[in-house]
């Protein structure tokens, strides 16, 4: 059984591609056969985050337009041999994706015994985002603890429950997971950032992971190594926890409490 997981958010810049890359790597690290697909046609970026930008010859749109085979377009990861990247086209316009074409690619991956297909959605709610979520079995909704991101996530949750193949066929809804990113426990403690509980209560679903705001994320994208592989960074460890929970493990949340303040910072403010 191949499971299609869409990573989506509505709002841009919240960490969809960072999340897609880390989730895909985390699954592959556990021996799963994984393809991660960039649906952001015209604004390809997953290749950079995965560190395979120099090896893109054919892309998703080439496959859909029968200009190459799927095998030719899948880029095998250098670190995990069960992990493959399918890059977005950099030149074509967003109408280059078609529902039939996307379905054909997903069917072919299923026939090739992939365990997971991670679909990295573009921002917005237009065609690319719609096609990324349409065939999903599960959705990871990436949200920042910030008003516009939370509102957009709610729109996306609405679309997941109506504009997907599962919703239309009526055979069970898409399983929704919330992933809170750029979380800053110190700012939550001081009352100027919404807490995990706030966001869960507003959106009515529980988080599958909380990724702390971390210098490791920028360092990882600078070097083309998904942050989950940076075991020294809090963000990397938090992504690893999230992957474990996706696979059914129970793990307590980490890095969600502000560090205890010392005497001086308590007296003089910190």
């Amino acid at each position: 059984m191949t499971e299609n997981i869409v990573v989506t958010s509505g709002k841009g810049g919240v960490g969809k591609t960072t999340t897609s890359a880390s989730i895909a790597v985390g699954l592959a690290k556990r021996g799963k056969k994984v393809a991660v697909i960039d649906f952001d046609v015209g604004l390809r970026n997953l290749d950079l985050i995965m560190g395979c930008e120099r090896r893109v010859v054919y892309d998703f749109v080439n496959v859909i337009h029968n200009e190459c085979t799927l095998k030719q377009a899948l880029i095998r990861d250098k670190r995990y041999e069960t992990l493959y990247v399918l890059a977005a086209s950099q030149t074509r316009d967003k109408d280059a994706l078609t529902q039939d074409g996307v379905q054909r690619v997903l069917d072919e991956l299923a026939a090739d015994d992939f365990d997971y297909v991670v679909c990295d959605s573009p921002a917005g709610i237009e065609k690319g985002a719609f096609l990324a979520m349409y065939f999903a079995d599960r959705a990871i909704v990436v949200v920042n603890p910030e008003v516009s991101s939370v509102r957009d996530s709610d729109r996306i949750l609405g679309l997941l429950s109506s504009k997907t193949r599962r919703a239309e066929a009526g055979n069970g809804k898409v399983q929704e997971h919330l992933l809170l990113t750029r979380y800053n426990p110190a700012r939550v403690a001081s009352g100027d950032m919404m807490s995990i509980a706030d966001v869960e209560e507003i959106l009515g679903i529980k988080v599958v992971g909380v990724i702390p705001e971390s210098e490791g994320v920028l360092a990882a994208s600078n070097s083309g190594v998904p942050v989950i592989l940076d075991e020294a960074s809090n963000a990397g460890q938090a992504y690893d926890d999230a992957v474990a929970r996706l696979l059914g493990d129970e793990r307590a949340l980490r890095f969600t409490e502000a560090p205890k303040k010392g005497f001086f910072s308590r007296v003089f403010g910190g």
């Binding site: 008003v147 209560e201 403010g269």
Partner: peptide
């Protein structure tokens, strides 16, 4: 809370403001 906090400006507890606004809007 430090004893010099009153010297700092800026709105207090904007997170609860955000939560209340979103709760109403999203409903």
């Amino acid at each position: 809370m430090g004893i010099f906090d009153f010297l700092r400006k800026g709105p207090q507890n904007t997170a609860s403001l955000a939560k209340n606004r979103l709760t109403i809007l999203i409903q």
